[in-house]
Design a protein around this nucleic acid. Structure first.
Lengths: 341, 341
DNA sequence: TTGTACGCGTTATCAC
DNA sequence: GTGATAACGCGTACAA
């Protein structure tokens, strides 16, 4: 009813104990007699006490806040990642302050300041505009996921292995020529492994292949147009040959599949295709798309695990051992569906 | 470098001012001489000061926190909604503490307690397990989005109007029979308007129609199986007739479309279809799906607007006028694509 | 324009 | 087992 906040003082007066005892009831109950515990417990109910964690933070420094900066939520890779990170609350108890950066550097810096002002104990960074060197300079526990990580701890999908799996499968599907269609990727970001893995594997198999790097656009229609162009290109350049397409992600794969399917009324036998991510779109496509499934749950959980370790370290020893950087790799999973044999 | 936090006291000593003056520099700079402002500004840089908003909150009560409880993030309706809500930070400056509830009542209550403990100024609720009556009893500014809202302020899509638009379009497409396929929906949730709007409009047009209410399942495969069954049912019951399908959402629409398309190699002329939500899947489908687009950005912004008003009210007048509940409606937009004429 | 003193709600350090 | 009392970092009357 009343919004008047009841504090330890109120409880103390009500029970004729001191504030200290009330505090102990919460933080070290065993140091009170069972009887007195009951008295206080009852008082909490009578007075309808609600704890104030902010005051607690001010007093002991542990905010139990973790900051998150994520580029967006319309890519379901990010949405699902955030979902999984938030879910770790059940395990670790950390609360999350989340900011969507839209890939703007200045904006991100502003968000970083806000997060620091709220005394977050650590942060998880998924956006990629701020160099890891700068991130590291904030001198706060940080784990990045799937981005440049030269100066910070990180968790990444083993993109290289994923590409190897995808490329190998296409080879075993007896394709004549292998294509990897991707946009320009910097060499220092984990996703570059998809390109590297594709090339290495093709060479290892000694199979004809081509790397198609283009600006694939961002909106669905841009992607669609670009894929249409590439489709024409392929049919002219490799007529009659069995083409194995390793797409950069499931969205692109779906777009390409739709184009081919509408053209031929099916996925012709001279096309095999595999995507990346295991987005919902992959299984909801006109034909379920084979893909390399990122284990987003594991990525998220591992990231928090790593971060929690770091944060605990901060709380204990003064002389932090300053161990080297930790980069964890999560192996993706090959999901065979209907666009490969 | 050092993590020793520098406080107003440190700045005060460094500049030979008092703490109060430092505080004023931030909250009422004009009350200082320009010269002294500069001195303090320089000191902030020299000492590398970082503000502590938690202390500020404890002192003045304004946490600038808003709590969010959202069912999940794998439905992109929720993901996009969260995206849009978080984006309002640029406008209103409120930070968001977000919890994913997975539709568990006890879990949600626990989250509510956590949120209250962090002195949130208000909350936005998208999950629907806790009755609005209980929510209202927490006596804190609340806005719900698209859920039962008998006792709280809310923002909802005008589902009824959306259904009217969809149904009317199918009528104008000269369909012989109209079908609305949905799962069981409680009458007190806004989405029920889709069913009501469909029925009313059909009656108004005097057109043959059927309401198909089934448990449509949750996983993609469950949905697929269910849609397959319904498809058979329709083709047997309404052979040769032009069927206008108003699907409960785009995911269902896409699933149904895939089934029909794979069966006939196209969307036959005796099928028209329209979905709901304007999810990405709608435009990425094998044929772009006509749909009723929820204006998620407007829903989110309006919700925050409403919440901010409430929160400001709390900060000012003691005798809050206790005005009646506010339920805002956002009209959806008909998006004609290729599954309707 | 600037300073003093106290309050915000909790924890930590001593005592008893 | 329990209780004073001083932090924690900042805001805010009230003075000067």
């Amino acid at each position: 009813m009343d919004n008047k906040k009841v504090t330890f003082d109120d409880i103390a007066k009500y029970t004729h104990f001191s504030k200290t005892t009330i505090s102990r009831y919460f933080n070290n109950p065993d140091s009170l007699t069972v009887k007195n515990q009951d008295i206080i417990a009852q008082a909490l109910i009578d007075l309808n006490y609600q704890e104030n964690k902010l005051a607690k933070v001010l007093a002991n420094g542990k905010s139990e806040f973790v900051g998150i900066i994520i580029p967006n939520l319309y890519l379901d890779y990010f949405a699902e990642m955030l979902n999984q990170i938030l879910t770790t609350y059940e395990t670790f108890g950390y609360k999350f302050l989340v900011f969507v950066s839209m890939n703007n550097k200045e904006t991100e810096r502003k968000y970083l300041q806000e997060l620091l002002a709220y005394k977050i104990e650590g942060m998880i960074i998924l956006s990629h505009t701020i160099p890891s060197k700068e991130l590291a300079s904030y001198n706060i526990p940080i784990v990045t996921i799937e981005r440049e990580d030269d100066y910070v701890n990180s968790v990444n999908t083993d993109n290289y292995m994923g590409a190897v799996q995808a490329t190998s499968l296409l080879c075993k599907n007896n394709c004549d020529v292998l294509l990897h269609i991707n946009s320009q990727v910097e060499k220092d970001v984990p996703a570059y492994g998809r390109i590297q893995g594709f090339q290495d594997t093709c060479k290892e198999y000694g199979i004809q292949h081509e790397l198609i790097i283009r600006d694939l656009g961002h909106s669905p229609s841009e992607i669609h147009n670009c894929m249409t162009g590439i489709c024409h290109y392929l049919e002219e350049k490799y007529p009659g040959q069995k083409k194995g397409l390793f797409m950069a992600n499931d969205t692109h794969a779906n777009s390409m599949l739709n184009i081919i399917f509408r053209k031929h009324g099916k996925l012709p036998g001279d096309y095999r295709m595999i995507g990346f991510d295991d987005s919902p779109i992959a299984s909801q496509a006109i034909i379920p798309i084979s893909t390399i499934g990122q284990q987003i749950d594991k990525l998220a959980f591992t990231a928090m695990e790593l971060l929690v370790e770091e944060m605990n370290e901060r709380k204990k020893r003064r002389p932090k051992p300053k161990t080297g950087l930790i980069h964890k790799n999560i192996t993706p999973i090959l999901l065979r569906r209907e666009t490969t044999d």
